[in-house]
């Protein structure tokens, strides 16, 4: 049952977005998020919607995959929307007892909702078109400058990629331990939330022990293959910019300028 979980959410397709260098996509997403919080008028919304629609079409990923991420934040959206709607002071347009809807509240609520929804869709496009490995590689390379500030960039990237490799193994192991404990009469289903949490102990303890053992084995195997940190390491698949990546940078830059112009002029 646990085996059905899909890892990451990469959607394989043959689109220009899939082929882009992960660093470009990371940079683009960053600019997109900044733009989202820059605009505060209808023209800004329209402009970003236009850009978003273009990127969605380019990615060749079905739109339904992108709005999947929305399901997990729907409660947050409603709560934040309601608070903004009723609790913003300003010009009153309707009232229900002690609750008042104001013009400013309406504006804040809708702006915030649009921002959150666009944020989820935009970041989903990045994770849907980039494999977890590319993403790690891209992060390592883009953040390389932080090494000077003693941030262990290579080590963090290595940990991320090892975690990605071991998630399916640990899931399988969880499944095995669960079945073994159920065969001995453990009960993972009944009871209230606290009882359920307590029933997880016989699952988690062996899982942790085994994870530590695996980590020790893996560390030895890495050392045996001359792993010695990031220094002096070469890459089998180094990231290299090609002309389409340069063009994409230019496009992102132009789009960002338009956003700023729209913000200043209108």
């Amino acid at each position: 049952m646990l085996r059905d979980i899909t890892l990451g959410q990469y959607y394989p397709a043959d689109s220009i977005l899939h082929k882009l260098d992960p660093r470009v996509k990371l940079f683009g997403t960053l600019i997109y998020i900044i733009s989202l919080f820059l605009f505060d008028n209808i023209w800004g919304i329209l402009w970003i919607t236009l850009a978003l629609v273009c990127v969605v079409r380019l990615s060749k990923v079905p739109f339904s995959f992108m709005i999947r991420g929305l399901r997990s934040i729907i409660i947050l959206l409603i709560v934040a929307g309601v608070f903004n709607l009723f609790l913003t002071p300003g010009q009153e347009i309707a009232s229900f007892g002690i609750f008042k809807i104001t013009m400013e509240g309406l504006r804040n609520a809708s702006l915030m909702t649009v921002r959150m929804v666009y944020l989820i869709i935009g970041t989903s496009i990045m994770t849907l078109t980039t494999t977890p490995n590319q993403l790690t590689d891209g992060l390592e390379k883009s953040l390389h400058g932080l090494t000077k500030l003693n941030v262990p960039v290579h080590e963090i990237a290595m940990m991320m990629s090892i975690a990605l490799r071991f998630i399916p193994i640990l899931i399988e192991e969880t499944d095995k331990i669960m079945k073994a404990q159920m065969a001995r009469g453990a009960d993972f289903e009944s009871g209230n939330i606290f009882q359920k949490a307590r029933n997880m102990v016989p699952l988690l303890v062996p899982l942790f022990v085994s994870a530590f053992r695996r980590a020790y084995d893996l560390a030895q195997a890495m050392e045996a293959r001359c792993y010695n940190g990031g220094e002096g390491r070469t890459k089998m698949k180094p990231l290299k910019y090609v002309s389409r990546d340069r063009n994409a940078y230019i496009l992102i830059f132009v789009a960002f300028v338009v956003t700023i112009v729209l913000k200043v002029v209108l």
């Binding site: 977890p132 490995n133 990629s161 090892i162 990605l164 490799r165 193994i169 695996r214 084995d217 893996l218 030895q220 195997a221 890495m222 045996a224 293959r225």
Partner: peptide
């Protein structure tokens, strides 16, 4: 090493 799972580092 003995355990094949615990010595493979990459996911490809």
């Amino acid at each position: 090493f003995q355990n094949p799972d615990n010595q493979i580092i990459a996911s490809v």
